[in-house]
Design a protein around this nucleic acid. Structure first.
Lengths: 317, 317
DNA sequence: TCCGATTGATATCCTGAAGATATGGATGGG
DNA sequence: CCCATCCATATCTTCAGGATATCAATCGGA
């Protein structure tokens, strides 16, 4: 009676995403008829209609929607099992740390140093670190499908299935072309950005003040982002530490009090808190605490930037 | 390259649990040779040795341990996908509430009433309730594999992958045979129970003061438990509300300050917070609050029990 | 030390299900 | 009204999952 196979889940996800049997079959590297049959068998097995097909169009039922969601997480869980097993089988297992390039708040290097330095004490809970930078999806997704053991991510993110501890909170600044008239002003508000293209694609003059995603998947690293900003095709919201770490002559960073601050957090799969992960998390927290309390604020740029890169705050949970 | 099937996971879990190919094959309803081959193929596919076999004995490697854990959760995720899809496909979808019989703190009936009464307001977020009482594992497991949408459970439980809100906290009492000499005393401590058999199976004279599990899977409901206690073969720790709800002539409930109190909580899968679930959770909290603030303490039994069933406290997170 | 019992591995055969190809039928657009 | 599009049906083929029989290695006991 029971016994769903991941193959069936993969097939359904493909069809549900494409809403087109032909394209889904092509994506799966198979012919269309067996795919149709597989989906029909799946529906019969579940006793539920997942898709509505006319001869011209495929739609998804409410039950199909929930199954699509659950199928995706189940597939991620299976992939995670495989990845973690492979990882655990390595003779030199690595602690895989996922992060978005340049979005570490300047903490990555000291954290890695401190973590490596831990080996003097108890060697068992320290292992070599491997950075997971690219790949599909965000860092949290890398945790879910087993590509990484721990992640540095900017909140807010999807907390489902992960535990996390905040490391540091900073306000966000807006990155403008230096030639932009707004760059001459020190106090900006969201309304001033009317007409400029924002990260979420919509123009700023639409009334939404929702916090724009600053980790849009489309832009892979800061270099690309800086290029877009420099040519004036976009403005962007960035954590203040980025303004501190990456001064650029053609880009002006300005504070924007309306935008809520971001928090950099260390996250790991909720089920899994191995000794090395725990040690890494602890180390990260200690480094972040030290950075907040001990570090004098570096000010390499103009006075406006000093405001933008206001005092670091230890994030409170 | 990739493409792990749930069948492979089921096979591995069986072998890893039995540590015996023959028995595992029997459990899976298949012959031993293909099972051996399947496991070997799995290991080759992962590039990792999961089991150590001599001709006489099967052991599990560290990698196998982590894979076993992940495989179990992946299988639960797949099962959950199937169950929830079936559920969502029903023409009259039900809100399935998992709980342990008689362990609802007396809140179940008022919660259900209040929840049903909600339909007057916004009908969309209320659906008929189905109780999930039995089945393998505990209520949290029922959430994980999709047998239930919400659960009432006693903390502490495994919080991984679930969100929860506490409803009420009460001290625990010990249930003794009325004829037990200790029943004459009003103030007991753990040491007094030396020699009696405790729920976790170990005798009380072993030095552990760890909170004994009061939801041992072995005993399905309170009737069985009461029988065991009445014949003097066991003493048991129970939430104080049980003493209030189920007075028994042959059983004495006595307070035991050393045992930490329990909290009844409402829990749901972390990924899933549908409108009906949210409404149920809210209703449960409101009912619990009302019960704590408004209910006069009913006292049907002797003075000692009154102490045992001390004031209800609203649980603080 | 030897023999039998236990247990996993190997060899060979078979069945069924996954998949391919060819084709039909329904629908929407021009 | 016809053609293009797209899902369903029918039939055939292949191969992987599984069964049976057997071997090989190890442990225990006499």
């Amino acid at each position: 009676m029971d016994g769903l196979e991941t193959r069936q889940l993969r097939y359904f996800v493909a069809v549900a995403e494409e809403l087109h049997f032909g394209r889904a079959a092509q994506r799966l590297g198979m012919a269309q008829p067996p795919l149709s049959k597989a989906i029909r068998d799946l529906e019969r097995q579940l006793g539920v209609q997942l898709l509505t097909r006319t001869t011209r169009q495929v739609g998804i039922t409410p039950a199909g929607e929930v199954f699509l969601r659950d199928a995706r997480t189940a597939l991620a869980a299976v992939a995670a099992a495989a990845r973690r097993a492979r990882q655990a089988g390595q003779s030199r297992p690595m602690l895989r740390v996922a992060l978005k390039a340049d979005f570490d708040g300047g903490l990555l290097a000291p954290i890695l140093d401190a973590y490596a330095g831990l080996s003097a004490g108890s060697s068992a809970e320290v292992m070599p670190v491997e950075l997971v930078l690219g790949g599909p999806g965000d860092q949290i997704e890398a945790l879910h499908d087993g590509r990484a053991d721990v992640a540095l991510a900017l909140t807010p993110f999807d907390e489902h299935g992960v535990d996390s501890e905040p490391l540091l909170t900073e306000p966000r600044v807006v990155a403008l072309p230096a030639v932009d008239p707004l760059a001459a002003r020190t106090d900006l508000c969201l309304a001033d950005l009317a007409g400029r293209r924002l990260p979420n694609g919509s123009a700023a003059d639409s009334g939404d003040v929702a916090p724009p995603p600053l980790g849009s998947a489309a832009v892979k690293d800061l270099s690309q982002l800086f290029n877009l900003v420099e040519v004036g095709s976009m403005v962007w919201f960035l954590p203040a530490w980025v303004a501190r770490q990456f001064p650029r002559p053609n880009i002006a960073y300005r504070p924007l009090p309306e935008i809520p601050p971001v928090t950099l957090a260390v996250a790991w799969p909720a089920e899994l808190r191995s000794a090395p992960v725990a040690a890494f998390v602890r180390t990260a927290q200690e480094v972040a605490d030290a950075a907040v309390t001990a570090t004098p604020q570096p000010r390499h740029r103009g006075p406006a930037d000093a405001d933008a890169a206001g005092p670091r705050q230890r994030a409170d949970h």
